[in-house]
Structures are given as structure tokens and as C-alpha cells.
Deep mutational scan, measured.
Amino acid sequence: VKVYLPNKQRTVVTVRDGMSVYDSLDKALKVRGLNQDCCVVYRLIKGRKTVTAWDTAIAPLDGEELIVE
């Protein structure tokens, strides 16, 4: 899953069964001094942002793009 992060940064996270968006992005956010409490995650669908819950399973999102703001 390709993830666009604040400050024009981006990362790619590996999809693993049983993991949530929260778990999958935890390290990427912490390395950048961010956490899930201060950010909102969106799914990018056909160029439009849709709010996605942090506890959403990451497996069904394989191949999609997320935006964290």
C-alpha cells in the first residue's frame, strides 16, 4: 500500500493479514515524529479522499493508496 504522509513524504507498507491500518503505519509515523492521535487517514479512490478508520483491516486495501494528514 502506497501512503502519502505529511510534509510531502511517502512510504510503502507491506500488507499482512490480521493487521490494521494503525498497526501497519505505526513505525512509519513514529520515525517521522507523528502518531495516529494527531492524524487522519484517507483512502484515495479515483482521485477523491474518503476518511478511513485507523482500525480498518489493511489486507483488503492491498494495491490502494492512502493519505495521512
Score class of each variant (00 low, 15 high):
Leu61Met: 14
Val13Glu: 02
Arg48Glu: 14
Asp17Asn: 14
Arg48Lys: 15
Leu25Thr: 00
Arg43Glu: 02
Glu64Trp: 09
Ala28Ile: 08
Leu44Trp: 12
Leu5Ala: 03
Glu65Cys: 10
Asp26Lys: 12
Lys8Cys: 08
Cys39Asn: 02
Leu29Met: 15
Thr14Arg: 13
Pro6Cys: 04
Asp55Ala: 06
Gln9Tyr: 05
Asp55Tyr: 04
Gln36Met: 09
Glu69Phe: 01
Gly33Gln: 04
Gly47Cys: 02
Trp54Gln: 01
Val3Lys: 04
Ala59Leu: 12
Thr52Arg: 05
Ile67Asn: 07
Asn35Ile: 03
Val41Ile: 05
Asp62Asn: 12
Val3Tyr: 13
Asn35Gln: 08
Lys49Thr: 00
Val68Ile: 10
Thr11Asn: 00
Glu65Met: 07
Gly18Met: 01
Val41Arg: 04
Arg43Pro: 02
Gly33Leu: 01
Pro60Gly: 14
Arg43Tyr: 02
Val41Trp: 04
Val15Ile: 11
Val31Lys: 12
Leu61Ala: 09
Asp17Lys: 14
Tyr22Met: 10
Arg48Trp: 04
Ala59Met: 15
Gly47Gln: 06
Glu65Ile: 11
Arg48His: 13
Thr50Pro: 03
Arg48Val: 14
Asp26Tyr: 09
Gly33Met: 13
Arg16Glu: 13
Val15Asp: 07
Tyr42Gln: 00
Val31Trp: 07
Ala28Trp: 06
Met19Thr: 13
Thr56Pro: 04
Glu65Ala: 12
Leu5Ile: 00
Ala28Tyr: 08
Arg32Phe: 13
Tyr42Arg: 00
Glu65Asp: 10
Asn35Pro: 03
Met19Gly: 08
Leu34Ser: 02
Val31Asn: 12
Ile67Phe: 15
Val51Met: 15
Cys38Gln: 13
Arg16Tyr: 13
Leu44Glu: 07
Arg16Pro: 10
Arg32Gly: 07
Ala59Glu: 12
Ile58Leu: 13
Asp17Glu: 13
Leu34Thr: 00
Thr50Ser: 06
Arg16Val: 10
Arg10Ser: 15
Gly47Ile: 02
Gln9Ile: 10
Pro60Ile: 00
Gly63Val: 11
Val12Ala: 05
Ile58His: 02
Lys8Gly: 15
Lys30Asp: 03
Glu65Trp: 05
Asp37Trp: 02
Gly18Trp: 04
Trp54Cys: 07
Val15Pro: 08
Lys46Cys: 10
Thr52Gln: 07
Gln36Phe: 10
Thr52Trp: 07
Val41Glu: 01
Val21Gln: 02
Asp62Arg: 12
Ala53Glu: 15
Glu69Thr: 09
Glu65Gln: 09
Leu61Ser: 10
Arg10Leu: 12
Thr56Gly: 09
Leu25Asp: 03
Glu64Ala: 09
Glu69Arg: 04
Tyr22His: 14
Arg16Gln: 12
Val15Met: 08
Ile58Cys: 13
Arg43Lys: 09
Met19Ala: 09
Asp17Val: 09
Arg32Asn: 15
Val13Trp: 02
Tyr22Arg: 15
Tyr42Phe: 13
Ile67Val: 09
Lys30Ser: 08
Pro60Glu: 14
Ala53Cys: 09
Lys30Val: 03
Tyr22Thr: 06
Cys38Val: 12
Cys39Phe: 05
Arg43Asn: 04
Ile58Asn: 02
Val21Gly: 00
Asp55Cys: 05
Lys49Ala: 05
Arg10His: 14
Gln36Pro: 13
Lys30Pro: 00
Val21Thr: 00
Arg10Phe: 15
Gln9Ser: 11
Val1Arg: 05
Asp62Gln: 14
Gly18Val: 03
Ala28Ser: 08
Val31Met: 12
Val31Thr: 14
Asp55Pro: 02
Leu34Met: 10
Lys49Leu: 07
Val3Ile: 07
Ser20Lys: 06
Lys30Met: 07
Gly63Asn: 08
Asp26Ile: 10
Lys30Arg: 13
